[in-house]
């Protein structure tokens, strides 16, 4: 015997009534779901960002050291001073070098993991990238402090191999050299590369995994040599992943102030400049203006990445 009624009465209670409301007005449900995260991220986080950026249009009074709350581009002009411009150029070129090197080292790992690794090896490669990615940033930096130390393992290996002359030669080079590896740009570069490398591998592997084997077969079927197949088929298809990975390597290098402080010369990077201006110098406007540079670079970068479809690879 079917139930006598086709419609059950509306339930009492707040939940039943809310549930009815959500069904009748899906927009209300959507709003309820979105309100807390949007309040947190959109109001607190974005609000803080905007407040910070707004301060870059103020300036600091040179005599009193207090912030003058008047709109001005004076602070931005200060960015163009040779000393500050140096910092910008140094940081951006370091980020570019790190990104390029990371892409080169990441590619064989990502390609092998995506195309050839099966079963056990697939797991090994996956975890082999995930574990360094997630292990402590400071511990990784610390490990390189150990490696690059004068009495550390790298110098020891170089000595054992009787290659000290080569290392000295490299360190004697202008700009990239220095007294020892731990106070040279090469050192800074190595640590950056090491710390951000996993961020390049994962998205690259994700996009390579989406290249169907049949594409490669089709290409070689059509008479392409392996190298031609690589440049004509594999590389363009891996590009979105590479761009997605470079978002991380580039952005992380731009904003880091700890690595150059621990391993490297005394010349500043953007992060260090921001840190010292907001801290000891108390020059928030200049610090804010400095942060605008990576924001603008990253905005362009993200816009470009989106156009290349890189977001699907993240």
């Amino acid at each position: 015997m079917p139930n006598p009624h086709a419609i059950k009465p509306a339930g009492g209670g707040v939940f039943a009534r809310l549930s009815d409301l959500f069904w009748r007005r899906p927009g209300v449900l959507l709003l309820t779901l979105l309100l807390p995260p949007v309040l947190w991220l959109g109001v607190i986080y974005i609000g803080s960002l905007v407040a910070l950026l707004a301060q870059s249009f103020f300036s600091i009074d040179e005599f009193s050291g207090l912030i003058k709350y008047e709109l001005t581009f004076k602070t931005y002009l200060e960015l163009l001073r040779p000393a500050n411009l140096d910092i910008l150029v140094r940081t951006v070129s370091m980020a570019a070098m790190v990104t390029l090197a990371a892409a080169v080292i990441a590619f064989p790992i990502a390609y092998y993991a995506a195309r050839y690794a099966t079963g056990k090896w697939k797991v090994i490669f996956y975890l082999g990238v995930m574990l360094p990615l997630w292990s402590s940033y400071l511990v990784k930096v610390y490990a390189w402090k150990l490696i690059l130390a004068k009495e550390g393992i790298l110098n020891w290996i170089v000595e054992k191999l009787h290659l000290s002359w080569a290392l000295d030669g490299i360190l004697a080079m202008p700009v990239i050299g220095g007294n020892s590896l731990s106070v040279s740009y090469i050192g800074t570069f190595l640590v950056f590369l090491y710390v951000w490398l996993p961020f390049m591998i994962l998205p690259m592997q994700a996009s390579l995994e989406r290249v169907p084997l049949s594409f490669l077969e089709a290409s070689s079927d059509l008479g392409a040599k392996p190298a031609q197949t690589f440049w004509a088929v594999v590389f363009p298809l891996a590009l979105p992943g590479m761009i997605a990975g470079s978002i991380f390597t580039f952005s992380l290098t731009l904003g880091d102030y700890i690595i150059p402080q621990i391993v490297g010369s005394s010349r500043l990077f953007i992060g260090q400049a921001v840190y010292s201006h907001q801290g000891t110098a108390g020059n928030i406007p200049l610090a804010a203006a400095f942060t605008v540079v990576p924001i603008i670079i990253m905005a362009f970068y993200l816009w470009f990445a989106k156009r290349k479809g890189a977001f699907d690879a993240i």
Partner: peptide, 17 residues
């Protein structure tokens, strides 16, 4: 309507369907 009762405003969990 389902068995004569208008249901446009009745959510699925209250319909005996």
């Amino acid at each position: 309507s389902i068995f004569g009762e208008a249901v446009q405003d009745v959510p699925p969990y209250r319909r005996n369907v």
